[in-house]
Design a protein around this nucleic acid. Structure first.
Lengths: 341, 341
DNA sequence: CTGAAAGCGCTAACAC
DNA sequence: GTGTTAGCGCTTTCAG
């Protein structure tokens, strides 16, 4: 049986209050009493029961990583793994604990964010994957527990967000395609009313318009960010519009780009010789696909790290709610052909 | 402020004990009292504080997923993601909570498995990534908290393991290479004293010997399961042994196979035309590499699911410690050339 | 069937 | 500085 604070108190000949003071580095305790208690605790291999601790103190430093839709991705998703690594990296450096919770649109309805925090005595959470139609989207604002959302902006006193300048990034990516001589560019988009879809669309449009271009008619394909939908959409597009003269596919995620390449290969086309394709995200897999995919690296691991950092600072009252925009980087690889004009 | 059991008791005009009985579906309570309490709880949006609950009841149904070395993989690792999905899938179906903890060899020393469980009031854990030199490797056996290890076998009354028949699987994989006409096969191995390395090595040897073959001299390359080491090892091998007539590389993981392919391409060789390569694991990325990698699918997600299932049953006393061996499947794709003999 | 009361292990006033 | 004590929100005897 594990030693409790009582056991330590008894063994050291002091009261439990004193042991608590010693263990938590309170100032109002004599150095030698502390020494002695710490030694006894060491000998007894005493470990404070964190559950009792947080119940008693009414607050914890535990933070949660809350993923919505994690189980719905049938495909592997590097994105979430990278995010986790970033979060856990931060927690690990600070000696904090992170618990990970998996939710979906239905469970959000059953239990609010605040209730989740209350149940588990969590100080705050990093939230990824919520849609604008999800209950959390509005209810987060009412929570007294701080939170940090990834890539979506939710207004609220205690809610921060960490994101990239998706518009600028997509502008760059589009401009790159244009610089390589592409004029007729098809768009493979994400969910129609997702924030990131809108932002990336704006970036693409801005670049196109600046160059006096616009997407050819019927060449904007919408998906729910699923690879299979990209494959299907592009296959359909090729059947009906092969004559439209499209030379490149601008995809809103790497997964969609991979799906696009599959459709193209299936139809007997070569990438990038017949069609150029670019993705977005910077998943590791894009270095191993054939061809290696030109994409925008969001530096997802950093996003996780900075989100955890920001959340922690909010919990400790050192930083207030804010919008953090992290840098991105255009990764030029082999999936775009330079056209002679 | 969230409602407590007291609030519900007051509002329903009963004692807290009765509310507790109603909430936990105890039999010794009249149907209509239960109804009433449940209705009040609903109205007050009452959610039991899980922290208080587990402190009070002295046991929880919470299970943990404990990953050792998660942060050390610089590369993405599908493996852990798949494992998580399997575990969370099970937990989700049962309405359980899983918390994920990241440890490494050092932190294992600071805090035993049992202490970790005690601190967080965890019933038991699924443990992945421990090495035979790690503190956990021996200390797990002494813990009263049940656990399930993935792919390593630790003896102990309360420890189960979920694994594949790596020896049989590697035998099959090797035999496949032999059936395709390969006679001189180089091995790209994992960590020298890892259990899985030994098992896979045994499988390879068994197949080779059965066919009257053995690995050419100096053609066994050891790594720590890092892609870069495979690249480096194979590059060195090619420089010194190109004449040995090796036609295929048998790799102990997909990551190593990817590293091997990189080295080969770097040296100007084509896969599978000049050299055949096979991997092991069944990571999703192997479907997108060039060429698509022939590998053994371990069905990692199922492993996670079954591990969580087994652990849960152990906690509830329905199953005792055991070794669970899950099926694997040879995935034949495009990285092996059939040699005419 | 239900209420009262004693804890679970710890923190945080409040005394001295 | 240190001991004492009242909770944190819940479960679980034990009465009745």
């Amino acid at each position: 049986m594990a030693a409790t604070i009582q056991d330590v108190a008894r063994a050291a000949g002091v009261s439990v209050g004193t042991v608590s003071r010693a263990m938590n580095n309170y100032p109002d305790i004599s150095a030698k009493t502390r020494e002695r208690i710490l030694k006894v605790a060491e000998e007894l291999k005493y470990r404070p029961n964190l559950v009792a601790k947080s119940l008693s103190s009414k607050h914890s430093r535990d933070i949660a990583l809350i993923l919505s839709g994690f189980l719905e991705d049938a495909m592997f998703n590097d994105f979430e793994t990278m995010l986790m690594k970033g979060c856990y990296q931060f927690a690990f450096e600070r000696g904090l604990d992170i618990s990970m919770y998996v939710i979906n649109s239905r469970t959000q309805e059953e239990k609010s964010y605040e209730q989740l925090c209350y149940e588990h005595n969590i100080a705050g959470g990093i939230i990824f994957g919520i849609k604008s139609t999800d209950p959390y989207f509005t209810s987060l604002a009412e929570s007294k527990n701080p939170c940090v959302t990834i890539d979506v902006e939710v207004s609220g006193e205690n809610v921060s967000s960490v994101t990239n300048d998706h518009m600028a990034a997509f502008d760059e990516l589009t401009q790159y395609l244009i610089d390589q001589g592409h004029r007729r560019i098809a768009l493979v988009c994400g969910r129609k009313n997702a924030t990131v879809t809108a932002q990336r669309m704006d970036g693409a449009m801005r670049a196109l318009e600046r160059n006096g271009l616009k997407p050819p008619a019927d060449s904007v394909i919408y998906t729910n960010f699923l690879k299979e939908e990209a494959t299907e959409g592009v296959t359909g597009f090729l059947k009906e519009h092969q004559d439209k003269g499209v030379t490149a596919f601008l995809c809103m995620s790497d997964l969609l780009a991979i799906g696009t390449v599959e459709a193209l290969k299936e139809a007997g086309c070569r990438v990038p010789d017949d069609y150029s394709v670019v993705g977005y995200d910077g998943l590791y897999v894009t270095e191993y696909t054939d061809p290696r995919l030109t994409t925008v690296d969001q530096n997802i691991k950093d996003k996780g790290y900075e989100a955890a950092h920001l959340l922690f600072d909010m919990i400790e009252g050192r930083r207030s709610a804010q919008r953090l925009i992290l840098p991105h980087k255009l990764e030029i690889r082999d999936s775009v052909k330079r056209l002679e004009i």
